[in-house]
């Protein structure tokens, strides 16, 4: 319920943000209530205010069920808050029309889901480049773009395989490739290290850190100590349930 935003590496920071005006994502008093006005009411997130900037990793930290996924969904425009607002470069997301919001999700946000969410039976390259379809990008260009991303993540030979033919770690990296394929300003990663071994986790964190330093806003939700170590800023969410009970 309370938010504790601390800059752990404030002294070392400041070198990342270069190039054109960097993107800023901001949550202002953002709250989410499921089933309001019913006996099943759930306060998933209670009034979170936080600015997310480029330059280093933001980690949203907290125990299971404290609302990390909920907050990431609100930041990425996949859901709308019950209270407060999310702003991108000063524009509230709820002010955007449906096509504008779709465009925001497509071009500016990369979302790494907690459970990957790849389409079964679809080759990896098509999965990775799915968000390029509504822009009318030819399948040859999509295949090339997907191939490049997959190669960066060490999956260069697997573009024609389907997700069922991959290991858990490979699926996870493919999902990361999909999040990165449009070269988004904002990367939202939900538990990027929870399902994979340490070596893979370190690789993924290195990629995220590099992006953050290259001027992207990178927000990672996790309860993994290893992720917290890598963070420049930590936003700590306390379990709202405990807060309500106590």
């Amino acid at each position: 319920m309370t938010v504790d935003g601390t800059d752990r590496t404030a002294a070392a920071g400041g070198e990342g943000a270069s190039g054109p005006a960097p993107c800023v994502l901001e949550a202002r008093g953002v709250g989410k209530v499921y089933h309001p006005a019913s006996s099943r009411v759930v306060v998933a997130l209670d009034r979170v205010s936080q600015r997310f900037e480029a330059g280093g990793l933001h980690v949203i930290w907290g125990p299971s069920g404290c609302g990390k996924t909920t907050l990431l969904s609100l930041l990425g425009g996949l859901d709308m808050p019950t209270t407060g607002e999310v702003l991108v470069d000063g524009t509230p997301l709820d002010r955007l029309s449906e096509p504008e919001l779709s465009l925001f999700r497509r071009r500016r946000v990369g979302f790494l889901f907690q459970n990957s969410n790849l389409l079964a039976g679809v080759p990896l390259w098509a999965n990775v480049s799915l968000s390029m379809v509504p822009d009318g990008i030819s399948s040859a260009s999509r295949r090339a773009a997907a191939g490049a991303r997959l190669a960066e993540l060490g999956l260069e030979d697997l573009g024609d395989r389907t997700p069922e033919e991959l290991s858990g770690g490979e699926v996870h990296r493919a999902a990361l490739a999909r999040a990165l394929v449009r070269d988004p300003d904002i990367l939202l990663a939900d538990e990027p290290t929870s399902q994979i071994d340490e070596a893979n986790a370190a690789g993924v964190m290195a990629v995220l850190d590099r992006l953050a330093r290259a001027g992207k806003v990178v927000v990672v939700a996790s309860h993994d100590r290893f992720v917290r170590e890598a963070a420049r800023w930590v936003t700590e969410l306390k379990s709202t349930r405990r807060a309500i009970g106590g």
Partner: peptide, 15 residues
Amino acid sequence: WEIGLMKALGFSVVD
């Protein structure tokens, strides 16, 4: 579910 995913990846209602 598929439509939810496509929407999350930036497909519009019209698409």
